[in-house]
Amino acid sequence: MNVPLFDMTRQYEAMREEILNTLDNIFKSGKVILGPNVKSLEEELAEYTNTKYAIGVANGSDALFLAVKALNIGKGDYVITTPYTFFATASCITRNGARPIFVDVEEKYYNMDLDKVEEILKNHPEKDRIKAIIPVHLFGKTLNLDKLHYLKEKYGIYIIEDGAQSIGSKWNNKNGFSVGDLSITSFFPTKNLGGYGDGGMVFTNNESLANRVRKLRIHGAAKKYYHDEVGFNSRLDEVQAAILRIKLKHLDEYIEKRINIAKNYDEFFKKYELTKVIDYPEVFEDKSHVYHQYVITLKTGNRDELRKFLTEKEIGTSIYYPKGLHQQKCFEYLGYKEGDFPITEKATKTTLALPIFPELTIEEQEFIVKSIKNFFNI
């Protein structure tokens, strides 16, 4: 049985006719840049996330960069974030001339430890230069929004929620993106709401910030050829917007299917007595986890051997992430060393993402878990 880590083709078959008809209408209209589908998607996603403004941009990395830029964060400023995340979460800080301060993550779900964030906000020798926090709702698990709101209010600090992996997630019935001065998501094809190419979105409840991001995405021009500042070329493609509008109608259904897949994994891990060798995500029915990735943690030190074994069985897996950002060569100048973030460093050596996408069958899941059982010879 060949089980990919992610498969776009099954989903496409279910909506192929609608997508092709929609694309044909776009091409016949000739409106392919910032057209009506981009505007409609922005409105629909603002409503879906319960935010006032949504601004489509070229990709999630640009969304982060533009969010930092819109807050006028730059040289001499610090921004707190996590070292256990995709590169863009930190590069958006350094590309704006600011300096990241990394904070270790919590056990099990690997979201940024907000207690450690507060310690930095209280005790950092240059705490007055810390302008923002960029928390990540990692793998689709919502970070504690109540605690995040408390930090924002107590310390008067900007929040940029990195929801690249968490569209549709909640915390105690609060939508993700409800705390951030700005928040972002990504429409990379593997995401829960993914296009057939790159795309991203910036969310905010602040009209002036929304207007700033809109200008920045088109070379700093509020009006064509009249540039208030030097901006960038970062526009969400009309074709991608149209495809995303089709998929958005099914997003809650996709999330429910991912939750059910997590539940199936849970039952199979118990059935095949694997709980003594691996930890796995708890099943959350309340959308506090939308399972963009399903990441297990090995209690033993043979993650790479397991991955090789599963590859030989034609089961797709991935490692998110093989190095903490503090260990990346380009960030050596920050002065961090091995051992500074022990939970992150442990996660880079012990975690493995298993296949998850809405169309994954229960038979495929059982094959995956039985293969893991065979590897451990349990």
Score class of each variant (00 low, 15 high):
Y150Q: 14
L121E: 05
G76D: 01
Y158D: 00
N144Q: 09
T89I: 07
R95C: 07
D128W: 02
D62I: 04
E119F: 11
N144W: 08
I160Q: 06
H124F: 15
N144I: 13
G140I: 15
L114I: 12
G74I: 08
E106T: 13
I130A: 03
K122W: 00
D128R: 06
Y155Q: 06
F102P: 00
V117F: 08
S61M: 03
A90N: 05
A164Q: 06
N123L: 10
D62V: 01
D113Q: 09
H137M: 12
T85S: 09
K152H: 14
T85V: 03
H124V: 08
K154R: 14
L71G: 06
K154C: 11
F102Q: 04
E126V: 06
N96I: 10
F86L: 04
L138Y: 09
N123T: 14
G163A: 15
T142N: 10
K141D: 10
I93P: 01
A90D: 00
K152N: 02
F65T: 04
D128G: 07
K141T: 14
D77V: 07
T81V: 05
K69T: 05
S91M: 06
T82C: 11
L143Q: 02
P135K: 15
I159A: 04
K127Q: 03
L138P: 00
V57S: 02
F65A: 05
L138W: 00
G76F: 03
A63V: 01
K131M: 05
E118H: 04
N111G: 04
V68N: 10
G74P: 00
Y150D: 11
L151T: 14
E161L: 12
T142Y: 00
N96W: 09
L66M: 12
E106Q: 14
L138A: 03
K141H: 15
N96K: 11
T94F: 03
R99W: 06
P125L: 12
N96Y: 12
T82M: 03
E106A: 04
A88C: 01
P83G: 11
V136F: 11
E107S: 15
D104P: 00
T85G: 06
A98M: 01
D128P: 01
I101M: 03
D115Q: 09
A58F: 01
L114P: 00
G76N: 05
E126P: 00
N123W: 07
K141C: 13
K116W: 11
H149E: 13
M112N: 04
A164C: 10
E126Q: 08
D115N: 13
